[in-house]
Simulated scan of single mutants.
Amino acid sequence: MKKIGITGQNGFVGSYLYNTLGLSSDKYERIPFQRDFFNNEEKLDEFVGQCDVIVHLAAMNRNSDPQVIYNNNIDLVKKLIASLEKTNSKAHILFSSSSQEEKDNLYGKSKKEGRELLADWAEKSGGKFTGMVIPNVFGPFGKPNYNSFIATFCYKLTNRESPVIDNDGEVKLIYVGELVKEIISQIEAEKDLNFYEVPHTSVYKVSEVLKKLENYKQLYFENGEIPVLESTFDLNLFNTFRCYFDIKNHYPVKFTQHTDPRGAFVEVIRLGIGGQCSFSTTVPGITRGNHFHTRKIERFAVIKGKALIQLRKIDTDEVLDFYLDGTEPAYVDMPIWYTHNIKNIGEEELYTIFWINEPFNPEDADTYFLKV
């Protein structure tokens, strides 16, 4: 079992990597890291000494003073190297560099020089080193105005603001989940690669991405319709967009009921893609679910009875409670990486319709059980 530590564990890529490694707890042991370890030699040495693999993601991306970015990033690399030398570590170090290396700015310079410093350490010490040069990364939970233009666009569109395009160039992109798979494959390969250019998985103009996101806003954010998703990029972009909702205030969404003397008619979901639709009956007091997905889109629609739907992002403690009543049919959609459940809190049977965007495959279920 490999013992893996991640500097920048709580950052955008770091948290996704940390959580993904946790899905394979039989193969990997995660060694916890905290940002203040860089300011405490004893704690940093203890962390480094435990690790078979260290993925160095900690870095500063933005600051009003580029020199501060450069100094910070080089300082972090030097502190890590000092600890590696002090503990006589032979760990495999993976370093997150950037396509900015080739540009004339201090951030790119800090990444290139940091990569070279770690490569020198590996050559002198007999350790392993992989310098990963990474294209533009996007995905759920990235910080707007910091991690990517996609994070900024998603935030603005879901907060009734208007995104602005500064430069409508073509951008090479990789989804954070794809990047994490690439990092894990490099961990498994255990090869020395001083310069490894991580291949991008898509190329789009900034305006093309914005057009897709504006479509998602109109169809899904405003009308609850699942849009046509023609590619893996579309699915990843849509799941990214969904993570910027103010979930507490957006759900539950009440359906429009059409009533006449015969009863009522309710449209549960309108979609540009297929998937699987099912329903369940649940007796009073019973809870279903307590699992999460990393790629699936899922809707719970209560049409009869009283239910409590609970959501919790897996690396947080906050539980979101949504109360639904079949007398006013409503739905809640499940964001990826949120564990969720549904409980019958009424005195009669609960009727729930479930829709998910792909048929259940027991060999690739994308379903991970974790109590809310």
Rank of each mutant, 00 (worst) to 15 (best):
K112P: 05
R35A: 10
L219T: 08
A151K: 01
Y338M: 07
V13H: 00
V180S: 04
H340N: 10
K205S: 14
L350D: 04
H92G: 09
D75F: 07
F153D: 04
V198E: 07
K86P: 03
K86E: 03
N39R: 13
W337Y: 15
K156C: 14
F238D: 05
K211R: 13
T282A: 07
G126E: 12
P144N: 06
V206M: 12
I342M: 13
N61Q: 13
K371F: 14
W355V: 00
I286W: 08
R242V: 03
F233I: 13
F12L: 04
V332Q: 02
I273E: 13
V48L: 06
D104Q: 15
K304F: 06
A307D: 01
V137N: 03
T256I: 15
N344F: 07
F369H: 10
N63H: 08
R312C: 08
N239F: 06
L80I: 11
D234K: 14
H92V: 05
S15R: 12
V13K: 00
H200R: 08
E170W: 11
I269R: 01
F241I: 10
E214K: 12
A122G: 12
I184V: 12
V319P: 05
S207D: 13
E41I: 01
E318S: 10
A264P: 00
N236T: 11
S98P: 05
S97N: 03
K90C: 15
K211Y: 11
S125H: 13
K156G: 08
M132V: 07
D364Q: 13
N63I: 00
I309A: 13
Q50H: 04
P284M: 07
Q50V: 01
K2N: 10
F138C: 05
H200V: 11
A119L: 06
H250N: 08
G11I: 02
G272L: 04
A151I: 06
D317W: 04
L17W: 03
N344T: 02
Y16H: 10
K172P: 02
G177Q: 07
Y28A: 02
I183Y: 11
F279M: 11
D45V: 02
E225L: 12
S202H: 11
G131A: 07
V180E: 06
F255I: 00
K2I: 13
V48Q: 01
M132H: 01
L118V: 03
V68P: 07
I93N: 02
Y16I: 15
N361Q: 12
P32S: 06
K191F: 12
